[in-house]
Amino acid sequence: MSRVSIVTPAALALERRLVLQFLGVGSLAATGLASGFVPLARAAEQSLAWPKNAFAQKNEAAALAALFEKPIVVPSDKVSLDVPEIAENGAVVPVSVTAALPNVTAIALLIPENPFTLAACCQIPEGTEPAISCRLKMAKTSDVVAVVQADGKYYSTRKQVKVTLGGCGG
């Protein structure tokens, strides 16, 4: 039941029906109080819990440790990261990640110079291609780090983006 204990109120709103299959209504209150956090890796299969602890971290190692279970991250050219060299507007930085690896289960995007390091984390179920594109905010010039979880191992690629106008402080 440890997985259930990390369901956030927001996730409950979205998947109340699913949760009710697991819990009696009475234990919902207890769920809200529980602060235990299970790393994403352990709950990767069908977790719906937003990894609150990981998003609160202010450096790369802490964010990864909160997100994954004992991650040993190795740089890999199998992970390709497509970011602009210079971003004129840090509020909208297009980021694409593609992993040429089998059995990818998650892709995380981190921006170490932002106030909070972790920007986004996507779960890739079986059958979904390990390639995503999105747009992120950058406070200032920073590396963008893509970490891919594949077969329980972790691979990363980083690239610096020069930001001329920050996107977090306005």
Partner: peptide
């Protein structure tokens, strides 16, 4: 087929692309 967890560093009016 896809779950995204986002923090406040995702841009306004978020865009996402993936394939399954």
């Amino acid at each position: 087929v896809f779950t995204a967890f986002w923090g406040p560093a995702v841009s306004k009016d978020p865009y996402l692309k993936f394939s399954f």
